[in-house]
């Protein structure tokens, strides 16, 4: 997939024009998609009818998530519903998600609800990027869940990454055997993860105004079947 520099710049500029530094999930995914990084298809719904229309286009089942720059941890806010298979479920979920979010943070700026295609579970990994004050664009990789939260099992490299850098990042984490295939399980698509790491690094190098970028989780599928970013969070630098 080719990179569309102009489109990325437009999305970032549009976010700034709206006085925001935090991109909404669907905006962050548009940036990633424009940069050739595979993402789960998703769109923003401003009301329940729009959510139903998007769900039909994406095909059931779908996932719905609160879209607010002020709510980072969507699950904590009761802002995520998965496996919604009908119009009725989508309408109910829309109302519930908004109500939960308002209860969780009454002053939050809520843009609507993101409707996303439902994908089969892959091995969860995390890919991130940030601008280090001394060294500039830096990429992070790890397994998702407790591996990253409790064990801090992550690797880092400065961007841009060579293909070998990206592969080393993957091999370096303690949980690597989980990806390489444990107890007869198939190996995940390591080349697809390496490619994603390189692209994320290139994006952070090219657009140094992206202060933080988290692709979490990324689903890594079996070898040859790719890797895809399920959720994305992007924050721009202050005042740039």
């Amino acid at each position: 997939m080719a990179t569309d520099r102009k489109k990325v710049a437009e999305i970032l500029a549009s976010t700034r024009r709206q006085g925001r530094r935090v991109l909404l999930e669907h905006e962050a995914k548009q940036v990633l998609s424009a940069w050739g990084i595979p993402v789960a298809r998703s769109e923003l719904a401003r009301d329940a009818s729009e959510a139903v229309r998007i769900a039909r286009e994406l095909r059931y089942p779908v996932v719905m998530k609160i879209a607010s720059p002020d709510i980072v941890h969507k699950s904590d806010a009761g802002g995520v519903r998965v496996g919604l298979s009908s119009e009725l479920e989508v309408r109910q979920a829309f109302d519930e998600i908004l109500a939960n979010a308002r209860a969780y943070r009454p002053n939050a700026n809520i843009a609507g609800v993101t409707v996303q295609e439902y994908l089969p579970q892959g091995k969860e990994v995390i890919v991130g990027a940030m601008q280090d004050p001394s060294f500039g664009a830096t990429v992070m990789f790890g397994l998702g869940g407790i591996w990253v939260e409790v064990l801090k099992d992550v690797s880092f490299r400065l961007a841009p990454l060579t293909a070998e850098d990206a592969k080393e990042m993957i091999r370096e984490i303690k949980g690597y055997p989980v990806l390489a295939g444990l107890r007869g399980e198939p190996q995940v698509d390591l080349d697809a993860i390496a490619d994603m790491l390189q692209k994320v690094g290139d994006l952070a190098c090219e657009f140094s105004e992206i202060a933080e970028l988290d692709l979490n989780p990324v689903f890594a599928f079996d070898r040859g079947k790719g890797a895809i970013a399920i959720d994305a969070r992007m924050i721009l630098k202050e005042g740039s």
């Binding site: 991130g128 940030m130 280090d132 001394s134 060294f135 830096t138 992070m140 990253v148 801090k152 992550v154 690797s155 880092f156 490299r157 400065l158 850098d165």
Partner: peptide, 14 residues
Amino acid sequence: SIWGGRIFSAALKQ
């Protein structure tokens, strides 16, 4: 944070 304390070492290795 998850980012703190290990980037410099990774950069030296790189």
